[in-house]
Design a protein around this nucleic acid. Structure first.
Lengths: 187, 187
DNA sequence: AGACGTGGCTAATAGTGTTAGCTGAAAGCT
DNA sequence: AGCTTTCAGCTAACACTATTAGCCACGTCT
């Protein structure tokens, strides 16, 4: 039996890619094993099990999302930064629905959990966007939650085909960005 | 073997209640069977299987949510209606996380699918809220999606414990309602 | 009372996650 | 080089869940 040369990172990356392709719910250990060219039990040499795999995919997704959003806002401020962040976030979720779905419902075990750290990094990117607006210190947390709810809600609803009827979805998203921008500017 | 006197509606109601208690992911056919006092295979006399059960729970949840939101806004308009609708929606999701989770990711098969009809009813309640604002016809769809994204995003993030840090969550939600109201009033 | 439809049962099958224990390939040491 | 050690991958086995097949008794309807 020739070695496949796997490591945890490779397994997680393959799992994330597979989740994007077939949907997180259809990501099975057997399917992943076949994808990386190995029998199912061998996966347990690299990840602790399905739950552990899910957590690691979530960490990967949050890091990538933070990277995408953080990179997109570089050099922008105010409305431009908001638009860039929102678009980057939505694009990420739509291009990687499986790994993003893995982030929903996982709870960090503590403040130094890699999951918590990755989440904070994504949050940090949105916080940077808010610095381009004149917002009271006491409002920043609320505004952050509002942005997160808007982006998360819109992206997940679209990913789940939650918008059935007519109007153009891209147009709605741009409208939504403008709406948030106006609200944040007039505080 | 005395008959248990079950029917589809009863099974679905029990399934929804159980999903709220243990989480949708942990809702197993065996657990549900035990709950209603019957062996697992007997459930298949009332529902088509797990997927069918999930759809039916989703329909129930959407109907109940529409009822809750629709009832809450009766007699109110403008900001009061918006606040009542948002609070009712969030309360419903937090009190019934399992059945609400069942609504995510299910797609109606057609316009006369009970699922689609129930979804439209919920949407209708939010549409009624928007009638209290002076919004261009062309903006209504976008505003509706914005409201839905905000409420869905906030409620699901909170239900999944997505808000980790300090600030008070109820306060954030009220802030969010005020934010949306201000934005909708100044269009 | 007798016939019938049907809700409940047991038994069996398939698929998935996981653990135990073996074995040979790769890496390190003398 | 040869020896040892580690460990990635394998097979076998088990537990749990969904689902189907087929039987049987309860309750209803005439």
């Amino acid at each position: 039996m020739p070695r496949a040369g796997l490591d945890p990172a490779g397994v997680v990356a393959a799992g994330a890619a597979l989740a994007d392709e077939v949907g997180l719910a259809n990501l099975t250990m057997g399917l992943l094993a076949a994808r990386v060219g190995v029998r199912t039990p061998s996966l347990y040499k690299h990840v602790g099990g399905q739950e552990d795999l899910n957590r690691r995919i979530a960490v990967l997704a949050l890091r990538e999302a933070a990277e995408a959003v953080g990179g997109a806002i570089q050099g922008y401020a105010g409305r431009d930064a908001l638009a860039a962040a929102a678009r980057a976030f939505r694009t990420f979720v739509l291009e990687h629905p499986g790994r993003y779905a893995a982030t929903i419902g996982v709870e960090p075990s503590g403040p130094d959990d890699p999951l918590a750290i990755a989440g904070q990094r994504l949050l940090g990117a949105f916080t940077a966007v808010l610095r381009g607006y004149e917002i009271d210190e006491s409002d920043v947390d609320h505004a952050l939650r509002m942005l997160r709810s808007l982006c998360h809600g819109f992206a997940t609803l679209q990913a789940a085909n939650g918008f059935q009827w007519s109007a153009d979805i891209d147009e709605s998203f741009e409208w939504l960005i403008a709406f948030a921008d106006r609200g944040l500017r007039t505080m």
